[in-house]
Design a protein around this nucleic acid. Sequence first.
DNA 1: CGGCATCCTTGGAGATACTG
DNA 2: CAGTATCTCCAAGGATGCCG
Lengths: 118, 118
Amino acid sequence: MTTQPPDSDTEEKTDAEQQNSDLCNVVGAVEEIGTEWKLITLHNLRDGEKRFNELKRSTGASSYTLSRVLDDLEEEGLIENRKELESPVASYYTLTEKGGDLRPVFEALDDWGANWLE
Amino acid sequence: MTTQPPDSDTEEKTDAEQQNSDLCNVVGAVEEIGTEWKLITLHNLRDGEKRFNELKRSTGASSYTLSRVLDDLEEEGLIENRKELESPVASYYTLTEKGGDLRPVFEALDDWGANWLE
DNA sequence: CGGCATCCTTGGAGATACTG
DNA sequence: CAGTATCTCCAAGGATGCCG
C-alpha cells in the first residue's frame, strides 16, 4: 500500500464485538464513530452545511487530518460532500440522514457535559 | 457522596473548544470520554460491578491497556474500584453516579446502531 | 487474580509546503 | 479554497514476563 491513509474496507468484527453484538450495538457504533475527531467533526455539522475551512477552524483539526476524517465519514455514509468547482472552489459538507440521526447521541453527551463538566 | 457534580469552571479550554463551549458541552464530553476503550469499558459496566478479568474478556483489551483505561476512568470519577485483598485478590469496578449518567449516551448509541448498523 | 514494567510496533496527527 | 504530499513525532496499545 502506498501512503494510503488508514483503510476502511469491509469491517471485520473483533472478538470483543462478537461477544456483545447480540446484546446491543454500542460497540459497533463506537467502532464506527468512536474517535474524537469523528465525533467532533460530526458535531460541528449539527447545524447544517459547512465548508472545509470552516470545519478546519471550528474543529481545530489540521487540513491533513480533517481531510482524512471527512473521507472516512463520507465513506461511512455519515456525511455528504457537495462541490462547487467554479471560481474559487468551494466544498460543502452536510450530515446525511444516517449522520443526522446521531443528534440524540450528541444531545445526551451535551446533557451529561452540562451536569458533570465545566 | 464524594462524587460531586461540577464545581466551578477551571478547565483550560482548547482553541477549538473555546469556539463551542459557549454553545454546548459536547466537545468537553468527547474529550473526557471520547476514546474507544473508555466508551467500551464504561459500556461494559452498564449492568453493574465487574472484576478486572471479566472486563478484560468482555472488552477485549489487554491487561496493560485495560489497567490504564481503568486508572483514567477512576481519576475522572467515572468508575469506582473496590478491592478485596484476602485470599486470591479480587478487584471490582462499578460506575459512579457520574459514570452511570452516561447511560443515555449509550442508549442513544445503541438506538442509532440498531438502525444503521447490522 | 490483578496489574505493573518493558519492549516494540503502528498509526494518529501536527507542521509545512505544494498544486489545481 | 480545498485539498494532497512528506516528514516526523509521540502516544496508544499488543505481547510477554514478573510479582504480591
